[in-house]
Protein backbone atom coordinates (compact mmCIF):
# COMPACT_ATOMS: atom_id res chain seq x y z
CA UNK A 1 0.00 0.00 0.00
CA UNK A 2 1.16 3.51 -0.71
CA UNK A 3 1.31 5.64 2.39
CA UNK A 4 -0.51 8.91 1.90
CA UNK A 5 1.91 11.82 1.91
CA UNK A 6 0.23 15.21 2.26
CA UNK A 7 1.67 17.69 -0.22
CA UNK A 8 1.72 21.45 -0.24
CA UNK A 9 -0.95 23.27 -2.23
CA UNK A 10 -0.36 22.87 -5.98
CA UNK A 11 2.41 20.36 -5.37
CA UNK A 12 0.69 17.38 -7.03
CA UNK A 13 3.29 15.77 -9.33
CA UNK A 14 0.98 15.76 -12.34
CA UNK A 15 0.32 19.51 -12.18
CA UNK A 16 3.90 20.32 -11.28
CA UNK A 17 5.49 18.43 -14.15
CA UNK A 18 2.96 19.36 -16.80
CA UNK A 19 3.41 23.06 -15.95
CA UNK A 20 7.18 22.78 -16.03
CA UNK A 21 7.12 20.89 -19.33
CA UNK A 22 4.80 23.45 -20.87
CA UNK A 23 7.00 26.34 -19.73
CA UNK A 24 10.18 24.74 -21.07
CA UNK A 25 8.52 23.76 -24.35
CA UNK A 26 7.10 27.23 -24.98
CA UNK A 27 10.41 28.88 -24.11
CA UNK A 28 12.20 26.68 -26.62
CA UNK A 29 9.63 27.21 -29.31
CA UNK A 30 9.33 30.97 -28.94
CA UNK A 31 12.81 32.00 -27.78
CA UNK A 32 15.45 29.40 -28.41
CA UNK A 33 14.46 28.05 -31.84
CA UNK A 34 14.30 31.47 -33.56
CA UNK A 35 17.63 32.43 -32.01
CA UNK A 36 19.26 29.20 -33.16
CA UNK A 37 17.75 29.53 -36.62
CA UNK A 38 19.32 32.98 -37.06
CA UNK A 39 22.75 31.44 -36.74
CA UNK A 40 21.76 28.42 -38.80
CA UNK A 41 20.59 30.69 -41.65
CA UNK A 42 23.59 32.98 -41.33
CA UNK A 43 26.01 30.12 -41.67
CA UNK A 44 24.01 28.27 -44.35
CA UNK A 45 26.60 29.22 -46.98
CA UNK A 46 29.56 28.41 -44.79
CA UNK A 47 32.13 30.54 -42.96
CA UNK A 48 33.61 32.08 -46.06
CA UNK A 49 30.35 33.57 -47.24
CA UNK A 50 29.48 34.71 -43.74
CA UNK A 51 32.67 36.75 -43.47
CA UNK A 52 32.10 38.08 -46.95
CA UNK A 53 28.61 39.27 -46.09
CA UNK A 54 29.84 41.03 -43.01
CA UNK A 55 32.78 42.71 -44.71
CA UNK A 56 30.53 44.30 -47.31
CA UNK A 57 31.15 48.07 -47.25
CA UNK A 58 27.53 48.99 -46.47
CA UNK A 59 27.34 46.43 -43.70
CA UNK A 60 30.57 47.67 -42.16
CA UNK A 61 29.23 51.21 -42.30
CA UNK A 62 25.99 50.11 -40.62
CA UNK A 63 27.97 48.42 -37.86
CA UNK A 64 30.09 51.53 -37.40
CA UNK A 65 27.09 53.85 -37.29
CA UNK A 66 25.31 51.63 -34.76
CA UNK A 67 28.37 51.64 -32.51
CA UNK A 68 28.68 55.44 -32.76
CA UNK A 69 25.01 55.88 -31.89
CA UNK A 70 25.41 53.63 -28.84
CA UNK A 71 28.67 55.32 -27.84
CA UNK A 72 26.94 58.72 -27.85
CA UNK A 73 23.63 57.61 -26.37
CA UNK A 74 24.92 55.65 -23.40
CA UNK A 75 27.08 58.36 -21.75
CA UNK A 76 24.47 61.05 -22.36
CA UNK A 77 21.71 58.96 -20.82
CA UNK A 78 24.01 57.89 -18.01
CA UNK A 79 24.56 61.48 -16.94
CA UNK A 80 20.96 62.44 -17.61
CA UNK A 81 19.63 59.43 -15.68
CA UNK A 82 21.79 60.17 -12.62
CA UNK A 83 20.78 63.85 -12.67
CA UNK A 84 17.12 62.97 -12.98
CA UNK A 85 17.21 60.31 -10.26
CA UNK A 86 19.15 62.63 -7.97
CA UNK A 87 16.75 65.53 -8.38
CA UNK A 88 13.55 63.54 -7.84
CA UNK A 89 14.88 61.57 -4.86
CA UNK A 90 16.90 64.24 -3.06
CA UNK A 91 14.85 67.40 -3.54
CA UNK A 92 11.29 68.38 -2.81
CA UNK A 93 9.85 70.68 -5.45
CA UNK A 94 6.46 71.32 -7.00
CA UNK A 95 5.89 68.97 -9.93
CA UNK A 96 8.23 66.29 -8.60
CA UNK A 97 5.64 63.53 -8.93
CA UNK A 98 4.76 64.69 -12.44
CA UNK A 99 8.43 64.56 -13.40
CA UNK A 100 8.66 60.96 -12.17
CA UNK A 101 5.70 60.11 -14.41
CA UNK A 102 7.15 62.00 -17.36
CA UNK A 103 10.25 59.82 -17.25
CA UNK A 104 8.10 56.93 -18.45
CA UNK A 105 6.82 58.65 -21.60
CA UNK A 106 9.34 56.90 -23.87
CA UNK A 107 8.12 53.56 -22.50
CA UNK A 108 4.50 54.46 -23.08
CA UNK A 109 4.82 55.98 -26.54
CA UNK A 110 5.39 53.74 -29.55
CA UNK A 111 8.90 54.37 -30.93
CA UNK A 112 7.44 55.04 -34.37
CA UNK A 113 5.32 57.83 -32.94
CA UNK A 114 8.39 59.21 -31.19
CA UNK A 115 10.25 59.19 -34.49
CA UNK A 116 7.38 60.99 -36.21
CA UNK A 117 7.29 63.66 -33.51
CA UNK A 118 10.98 64.34 -34.00
CA UNK A 119 10.45 64.44 -37.74
CA UNK A 120 7.68 67.02 -37.34
CA UNK A 121 9.78 69.14 -34.99
CA UNK A 122 13.19 68.95 -36.59
CA UNK A 123 12.33 68.16 -40.21
CA UNK A 124 12.98 70.91 -42.74
CA UNK A 125 9.41 72.20 -42.47
CA UNK A 126 9.15 71.71 -38.71
CA UNK A 127 9.31 74.80 -36.52
CA UNK A 128 12.73 73.97 -35.07
CA UNK A 129 13.85 72.27 -38.27
CA UNK A 130 13.22 75.30 -40.49
CA UNK A 131 15.55 77.34 -38.31
CA UNK A 132 18.16 74.59 -38.49
CA UNK A 133 17.66 74.42 -42.26
CA UNK A 134 18.36 78.15 -42.58
CA UNK A 135 21.63 77.61 -40.72
CA UNK A 136 22.47 74.64 -42.91
CA UNK A 137 22.25 72.08 -40.14
CA UNK A 138 20.93 68.73 -41.23
CA UNK A 139 19.43 66.83 -38.28
CA UNK A 140 16.77 64.60 -39.81
CA UNK A 141 17.85 61.90 -42.26
CA UNK A 142 21.36 62.15 -40.78
CA UNK A 143 23.16 60.67 -37.81
CA UNK A 144 22.27 63.46 -35.31
CA UNK A 145 18.59 62.62 -35.75
CA UNK A 146 19.26 58.94 -35.19
CA UNK A 147 21.16 59.73 -32.00
CA UNK A 148 18.38 62.05 -30.80
CA UNK A 149 15.58 59.54 -31.17
CA UNK A 150 17.72 56.79 -29.65
CA UNK A 151 18.38 58.99 -26.65
CA UNK A 152 14.65 59.63 -26.38
CA UNK A 153 13.75 55.95 -26.54
CA UNK A 154 16.40 54.82 -24.03
CA UNK A 155 16.35 57.69 -21.55
CA UNK A 156 14.20 56.00 -18.85
CA UNK A 157 16.43 52.96 -18.31
CA UNK A 158 19.11 54.44 -16.03
CA UNK A 159 16.73 56.68 -14.08
CA UNK A 160 14.22 53.82 -13.63
CA UNK A 161 16.92 51.64 -12.11
CA UNK A 162 18.22 54.36 -9.81
CA UNK A 163 15.07 56.03 -8.48
CA UNK A 164 13.69 53.15 -6.37
CA UNK A 165 17.15 52.33 -5.02
CA UNK A 166 17.97 55.91 -4.09
CA UNK A 167 14.55 56.35 -2.54
CA UNK A 168 15.06 53.27 -0.42
CA UNK A 169 18.59 54.22 0.64
CA UNK A 170 17.52 57.72 1.66
CA UNK A 171 19.66 60.80 2.01
CA UNK A 172 21.07 60.28 5.48
CA UNK A 173 24.39 58.79 4.36
CA UNK A 174 24.90 61.81 2.15
CA UNK A 175 23.95 64.15 4.99
CA UNK A 176 26.43 62.35 7.22
CA UNK A 177 29.16 62.79 4.62
CA UNK A 178 28.51 66.53 4.27
CA UNK A 179 28.51 67.02 8.04
CA UNK A 180 31.86 65.24 8.15
CA UNK A 181 33.13 67.88 5.73
CA UNK A 182 32.95 66.12 2.36
CA UNK A 183 32.85 68.35 -0.72
CA UNK A 184 30.21 67.81 -3.39
CA UNK A 185 32.53 65.70 -5.48
CA UNK A 186 33.85 63.66 -2.54
CA UNK A 187 30.27 63.02 -1.51
CA UNK A 188 29.29 61.78 -4.96
CA UNK A 189 32.40 59.72 -5.62
CA UNK A 190 32.83 58.12 -2.21
CA UNK A 191 29.28 57.78 -0.91
CA UNK A 192 26.62 58.04 -3.60
CA UNK A 193 28.38 56.35 -6.49
CA UNK A 194 29.46 53.18 -4.62
CA UNK A 195 25.92 52.84 -3.29
CA UNK A 196 24.31 52.99 -6.73
CA UNK A 197 27.15 51.35 -8.67
CA UNK A 198 25.46 48.09 -9.63
CA UNK A 199 22.10 49.64 -10.45
CA UNK A 200 23.94 52.11 -12.64
CA UNK A 201 25.80 49.40 -14.52
CA UNK A 202 22.56 47.51 -14.94
CA UNK A 203 20.89 50.60 -16.37
CA UNK A 204 23.79 51.14 -18.77
CA UNK A 205 23.56 47.57 -20.05
CA UNK A 206 19.85 47.93 -20.73
CA UNK A 207 20.38 51.34 -22.38
CA UNK A 208 23.10 49.94 -24.59
CA UNK A 209 21.05 46.92 -25.64
CA UNK A 210 18.13 49.08 -26.62
CA UNK A 211 20.31 51.70 -28.35
CA UNK A 212 21.90 49.05 -30.53
CA UNK A 213 18.65 47.32 -31.35
CA UNK A 214 16.26 50.26 -31.78
CA UNK A 215 14.35 50.00 -35.04
CA UNK A 216 11.02 51.86 -35.14
CA UNK A 217 12.02 55.37 -34.18
CA UNK A 218 15.28 55.22 -36.10
CA UNK A 219 13.50 53.93 -39.22
CA UNK A 220 11.36 57.07 -39.33
CA UNK A 221 14.16 59.62 -39.00
CA UNK A 222 17.05 57.90 -40.76
CA UNK A 223 15.83 58.02 -44.34
CA UNK A 224 17.42 54.62 -44.98
CA UNK A 225 20.31 55.93 -47.03
CA UNK A 226 22.52 52.93 -47.57
CA UNK A 227 26.09 53.50 -46.47
CA UNK A 228 25.10 56.77 -44.80
CA UNK A 229 22.21 56.60 -42.37
CA UNK A 230 21.64 52.89 -42.09
CA UNK A 231 22.01 51.33 -38.66
CA UNK A 232 22.38 47.61 -38.23
CA UNK A 233 18.69 46.80 -37.56
CA UNK A 234 17.64 48.89 -40.58
CA UNK A 235 20.32 47.25 -42.66
CA UNK A 236 18.97 43.80 -41.82
CA UNK A 237 15.57 44.80 -43.10
CA UNK A 238 16.94 46.38 -46.28
CA UNK A 239 18.96 43.30 -47.11
CA UNK A 240 16.01 41.07 -46.48
CA UNK A 241 13.77 43.13 -48.75
CA UNK A 242 16.47 42.86 -51.43
CA UNK A 243 16.12 39.07 -51.28
CA UNK A 244 19.59 38.74 -49.75
CA UNK A 245 18.33 36.55 -46.95
CA UNK A 246 21.70 35.11 -46.09
CA UNK A 247 23.37 38.53 -45.83
CA UNK A 248 20.41 39.73 -43.74
CA UNK A 249 20.83 36.81 -41.37
CA UNK A 250 24.56 37.41 -41.11
CA UNK A 251 23.92 40.96 -39.91
CA UNK A 252 21.08 39.76 -37.71
CA UNK A 253 23.43 37.26 -36.10
CA UNK A 254 25.60 40.18 -35.00
CA UNK A 255 22.63 41.76 -33.24
CA UNK A 256 21.81 38.41 -31.69
CA UNK A 257 25.39 38.12 -30.46
CA UNK A 258 25.20 41.55 -28.90
CA UNK A 259 21.98 40.48 -27.20
CA UNK A 260 23.55 37.32 -25.86
CA UNK A 261 26.54 39.27 -24.64
CA UNK A 262 24.19 41.71 -22.90
CA UNK A 263 22.43 38.82 -21.19
CA UNK A 264 25.76 37.48 -20.03
CA UNK A 265 26.81 40.87 -18.65
CA UNK A 266 23.45 41.25 -16.94
CA UNK A 267 23.84 37.83 -15.32
CA UNK A 268 27.34 38.72 -14.15
CA UNK A 269 26.18 42.01 -12.67
CA UNK A 270 23.34 40.31 -10.85
CA UNK A 271 25.71 37.64 -9.61
CA UNK A 272 28.17 40.30 -8.41
CA UNK A 273 25.39 42.07 -6.55
CA UNK A 274 24.44 38.83 -4.83
CA UNK A 275 28.05 38.08 -4.04
CA UNK A 276 28.81 41.50 -2.60
CA UNK A 277 26.01 40.82 -0.13
CA UNK A 278 26.99 37.27 0.77
CA UNK A 279 30.72 38.12 0.83
CA UNK A 280 30.06 40.23 3.88
CA UNK A 281 28.41 37.30 5.56
CA UNK A 282 31.28 34.95 4.72
CA UNK A 283 33.62 37.54 6.08
CA UNK A 284 31.66 37.58 9.28
CA UNK A 285 31.75 33.79 9.57
CA UNK A 286 35.51 33.67 9.14
CA UNK A 287 35.96 36.30 11.82
CA UNK A 288 33.97 34.42 14.39
Amino acid sequence: MNTFKPSRVGDAPLIKWSLITLAVLLSCLMLLVPLASIFQQAFAGGWQLYIEHLSDADTLHAIGLTLIVAALTVPINLVFGVLLAWSVTRFEFPGRKILITLIDIPFAVSPVVAGLLYLLLYGNSGWLGSWLFEHDLQVMFAWPGIVMVTIFVTCPFVARELIPLMQQQGASEEEAAVILGASWWQLFRRVTLPNIKWALIYGVILTNARAVGEFGAVAVVSGNIRGETNTLPLHVQLLYEDYQAEAAFASASLLALIALFTLLLKAIVEWRQQRSLSAHHDNEQSQL
Binding site: G170, S172, E173, E175, A176, A177, V178, I179, G181, A182, S183, R190, V191, P194, N195
Partner: peptide
Protein backbone atom coordinates in the same frame (compact mmCIF):
# COMPACT_ATOMS: atom_id res chain seq x y z
CA UNK B 1 27.32 75.89 5.47
CA UNK B 2 26.91 72.61 7.31
CA UNK B 3 30.31 71.49 5.95
CA UNK B 4 32.05 74.40 7.65
CA UNK B 5 30.22 74.18 10.97
CA UNK B 6 32.33 71.23 12.10
CA UNK B 7 29.76 69.59 14.31
CA UNK B 8 29.50 65.90 15.06
CA UNK B 9 26.12 64.41 14.21
CA UNK B 10 24.73 61.00 15.08
CA UNK B 11 21.70 59.92 13.09
CA UNK B 12 18.77 57.95 14.40
CA UNK B 13 19.31 55.24 11.79
CA UNK B 14 23.12 55.51 12.21
CA UNK B 15 23.65 56.38 8.51
CA UNK B 16 26.91 54.44 8.37
CA UNK B 17 28.42 54.22 4.87
CA UNK B 18 27.28 50.74 3.92
CA UNK B 19 30.01 49.95 1.42
Amino acid sequence: HVRERRVGFVFQNYALFRH
